[in-house]
Every structure is written in C-alpha cells, then in structure tokens.
Design a protein around this nucleic acid. Structure first.
Length: 229
DNA sequence: CGCTTTTGACCTGCGC
DNA sequence: GCGCAGGTCAAAAGCG
C-alpha cells in the first residue's frame, strides 16, 4: 500500500514524465528487460527495434529507458531514486522531439498527460540546456548488472572508438552495427558509482533482422518472451 | 587475407 | 575566441 507521501511523489513523477518502477523487483523474470518494458507500456517498436539483450545470465537490477539521453549527466539523473522509488524514465528532451513524441503518444494512450505546466525539476533542468542543432537519432538506454561489457543482443557490432570519460575510471566504448546501410550505434560504459553495472545506450533503429548466426538464439528468446507476455 | 580492435588525432558542440 | 569534453576517424596492430 502506498502512503500519502509516496502517492504524491509518484503522482509528481508521473507528471514529470516518469513511470514509477516497482520497488520490489523480484517479480522480474530472467528476461527482465522485455517484460518490464511491456509492464510499463513502452512502445513495442522501441523494444523490438533495438532487440534488447537477453539477460538470462545476468542479475537484472534496474532498468532504464529513455527516448533520448543526451549526456551521462542525464543518465545519472535518471538513475537516481525518486522518493525511494526506482524510476523508469521517459524524460523529454528538446534535442529530439519526434523521438519523445513516440513515447508521449504511448503515455497519452494510458491517460497519462504530460503537461508543460507540470514540468518537474528534472525537466526544468533540461530546459536550461540549449537544444543541440543536430537532430539525433532516438536513443534507448538501460542498465544491467553484468561482468561482461558487451551484451549479446543478436546484432553484429564493430567497435569504432573508445574514450575515457571524465570522472570515470572505466572507458566508454563506441560500436556501430556492421550491417550495410545500418546506422545504428551503441555505447557501452560502466557506472562510475557501481562498476558492476553496465550502461548500454542504443542510438537509431535497425532496418533489418538480427544477424543470421544468432537467429536461433533470437527465436528461443522470442519463445520465452511469448511465455511471459 | 579479411575482419576486428586499438588508439592517437581530429572534429564538433558548448560554456565561459 | 578559447578551452574542454564527447564523439568519430583512420592507420596500424592483432587475430582466426
């Protein structure tokens, strides 16, 4: 049962564009990413297009989602607790409104009205940031606890860069989908505060199926998903 | 030999 | 305009 304080916090979070993430994560099946997104009515296209990695061998701690995460600063903010409640974030970003539109449409379908008059602290903070001139591809970010940096998501990736990010011990790796004419990129880094956590950010949409080699795994994954969904 | 990874240089955006 | 930080490029090295 929610007490009055928690209710108000969650209501405010909702107005800010957040969807409360359950405190008790034990309900999450092994394939936590997919089921959690489904539970919170994230557009299926966002899930399917990015073909989220199997978390079968991972301890799934928290899940983050955003249509467009601009900087680690944003991610850190989103990763933070809100009134003790882990949040699944659907924050608005001025840098890519059409991406937000897709998410917002989903929310409105659930009678969640995200109103500019009800912008919370996080959004106000983001309003301070100048909109980037360059329109970015839609982004999708999530966090998993894993010993391996690169999670198997069914697609084939080629590493094209690595960068040491300020105030972090672990470098950030940049990957591109190896498929011709596919411009999807992936960023992988470890959380500075908790190196056990891996933050994976996808940018763009795959216009093709996962690589042939992983088809069987994907099918097995799909069957499991159907079981839970 | 072809593909992938590494890594320093370069480019770009942003704040001051 | 300058400096900083993030993102990308591309040559060289590594690997199967």
């Amino acid at each position: 049962m929610l007490n009055q304080g928690m209710f108000e916090e969650q209501e405010m979070a909702s107005q800010m564009g957040f969807v409360p993430f359950p405190q008790n994560l034990s309900f999450l099946p092994p394939l936590g990413c997919h089921q959690s997104l489904k539970a919170f009515n994230i557009p299926p296209s966002l899930v399917a297009d990015h073909h989220l990695p199997s978390t079968t061998n991972l301890t799934h701690e928290t899940l983050l989602s955003s249509a467009n995460l601009k900087q680690r600063e944003d991610q850190d903010h989103i990763a933070s607790d809100f009134g003790g409640t882990q949040l699944l974030s659907l924050q608005r970003s001025s840098a890519n409104l059409w991406a937000w539109g897709e998410v917002n449409e989903c929310l409105s379908n659930n009678k969640r009205i995200v109103n500019d008059h009800h912008l919370g602290v996080a959004t106000m903070k983001m309003k301070k940031m100048k909109a980037r001139r360059k329109v970015r591809e839609p982004r999708f970010c999530f966090k998993t606890m894993s010993e391996v940096d690169v999670l198997d998501d069914g697609y084939k990736w080629r590493k094209y860069g690595q960068k040491v990010v300020k105030n972090t011990q672990h470098p950030r790796s940049y990957y591109r989908c190896t498929q011709d004419n596919c411009r999807v990129k992936k960023r992988v880094e470890r959380l500075a505060e908790d190196p056990r956590m891996v933050i994976t950010t996808y940018e763009g949409r795959h216009g093709h199926s996962p690589s042939q080699d992983d088809q069987e795994d994907s099918q097995a994954q799909s069957q499991l998903n159907n079981f839970f969904w």
